[in-house]
Simulated assay, not measured.
Amino acid sequence: MIAAALIAGAGLSLTAAQAQQQQIQRTDLVQSDISVAEREVLQVRVDFEPGAVSINHTHPGEEVAYVLEGVLEYQLEGSQPVTLKAGESLFIPAGVAHLAKNVGNGKASELATYIVKKAAPLVVPVK
Rank of each mutant, 00 (worst) to 15 (best):
N56S: 11
I55A: 10
L111K: 03
I55L: 13
L14W: 14
P93F: 08
I34F: 05
A94Y: 04
V53Q: 11
R45D: 04
L72I: 15
G106R: 05
V64S: 03
G78A: 04
I7F: 09
M1R: 09
L76T: 00
Q31E: 15
E88N: 07
G106F: 06
G87F: 05
A97H: 06
H59I: 01
L99H: 14
K118M: 07
G9V: 07
Q75S: 14
Q75P: 00
E110K: 09
L6R: 14
A10H: 11
M1N: 09
V36F: 07
K118W: 06
L14Y: 14
A100E: 06
G78R: 06
A5Q: 13
I2C: 04
I34D: 05
L12I: 15
A100D: 03
A86C: 07
E88G: 07
T83P: 03
H59M: 03
E77L: 04
G51C: 02
V103T: 13
P125Q: 07
A97M: 06
V44C: 04
R26A: 10
A16N: 10
Y114G: 01
A120E: 15
V53D: 00
Q21R: 14
F91G: 03
D47Y: 00
K101E: 11
E88S: 09
L111C: 10
A112T: 09
Q75F: 00
S79Q: 15
V53K: 15
N102G: 08
L90W: 02
I34W: 03
Q31D: 09
E110N: 15
G87L: 04
V71N: 03
H98A: 01
H57C: 01
T15L: 15
Q22H: 10
I55E: 14
V30A: 06
G78I: 04
V123Q: 13
S109P: 04
A108S: 14
V116K: 02
Y114K: 02
Q80I: 02
E38Y: 07
F91H: 12
S89Q: 11
G51H: 00
I34A: 04
P50Y: 01
A65D: 05
